[in-house]
Simulated scan of single mutants.
Amino acid sequence: MAAAKRLFCFGCGYSARVFAARFRAKGGSVAGTCRTADKAAGLAASGIVPFLFGDGLPLEDPASALAGTTHLLISAPPGEKGDPVLAAHAADLRRIAPHVEWAGYLSTTGVYGDRQGGWVDEETPLDPAVARSDRRVKAEAAWTEFAASSGLPLHIFRLAGIYGPGRNQLLSVLDGSARRIVKEGQIFSRIHVEDIANVLEASMARPNPGAIYNVCDDEPAAAGDVVAYAAELLGRTPPPEIPFEKAELSPMGRSFYMSSRRVSNRRIHEELGLTLAYPTYREGLKSLLGTL
């Protein structure tokens, strides 16, 4: 990658920072947004030029912040009032769109809603089950419309449940917070954070503006199975099974169990030529033992 390449990340969180590290390792420069001065210091320490954005506050000097951007990643979540990036900076992005080589919007597989364990792919009609997924559907539509009118070479990535270093079931088993909640027929898909970066890199290598990709591993599984396997790897007794009906869950936790689906990742294999580093949760969790 030529040194002149510059990635700008709206929302430089867990997944974006892994991708940003890859981009920098190949010679590119990275800038990104966060909400607080403390987080800005953390971005700067990792080689990312930080800009404050969010909570209703736009970039202070968007022309300067976005200058030289060749690659754009949007992972800032939509709120009740819609997508915060488009609300604040649509005009600024329209100005740089002709110079952007690749853009990615990180969405969620939650846009498919409840399929009672059935399979979905990128052609499946959307049917969000909860308010935050409905916001994602609207944000996807807004970004798609913006890309069509501005020429921004946008790709949409629908992410499954994310895990990786510092965020995995091994840690929850160790700290005693893991719960093995059982709901008949409940199936989820997930993805290791490094494989998210692998997908984004593969898309950059084979850009196809307008494409949508499901980003998940090869084996949907019940959440309780992942907890049990994590306990096995650690040589611990897995936590007892708790029927969903008896589990005391927060509204957010309960909404997690309101939809069940198997997400197909065939497109990332066939169109991007990608082989996942962690095709199932088993390889992923094994690799994380050394991070504990």
Rank of each mutant, 00 (worst) to 15 (best):
A2C: 03
K5D: 14
R6T: 11
L7N: 08
F8D: 00
Y14N: 13
R22K: 12
S29T: 15
A31Y: 04
T33I: 07
C34E: 03
C34H: 03
D38E: 15
K39C: 04
A40G: 10
S46W: 00
F51K: 01
F51S: 03
F53Q: 09
G54F: 10
G54S: 08
A63W: 07
L66S: 01
T69L: 09
L73K: 04
P77F: 08
E80A: 15
E80K: 13
P84H: 09
L86K: 07
Y112V: 12
D121H: 02
E122R: 04
E122G: 05
A129C: 13
K138E: 07
K138P: 02
E140Q: 10
A141Q: 14
A142K: 04
T144N: 12
F146Q: 04
L152R: 10
H155M: 04
R158V: 03
Y163W: 08
G164H: 01
P165T: 15
P165R: 15
R167E: 12
R167H: 05
L170E: 07
S172I: 00
S172P: 00
S177Q: 03
R179N: 09
Q186C: 09
Q186E: 15
I187N: 11
F188T: 03
R190L: 07
R190V: 05
H192K: 15
I196M: 04
I196E: 06
A197T: 03
V199W: 00
S203F: 01
A205K: 00
N214G: 02
D218P: 02
A221C: 08
V226W: 07
A228R: 06
L233E: 10
L234E: 12
L234W: 15
L234Y: 13
G235S: 12
P239T: 02
P239I: 03
P239A: 11
P239N: 06
I242P: 03
P243E: 05
P243G: 12
E245R: 09
E245S: 11
K246S: 13
A247I: 07
L249P: 00
P251S: 10
P251E: 11
P251Y: 10
M252V: 07
G253V: 09
R254M: 08
S255E: 14
F256N: 05
M258H: 13
M258V: 06
S260G: 12
R261F: 02
V263G: 06
S264L: 08
N265V: 13
R266A: 14
I268A: 04
H269S: 03
A277R: 14
Y278C: 07
T280E: 06
Y281H: 14
E283F: 01
G284T: 07
K286I: 14
K286N: 08
L292D: 08
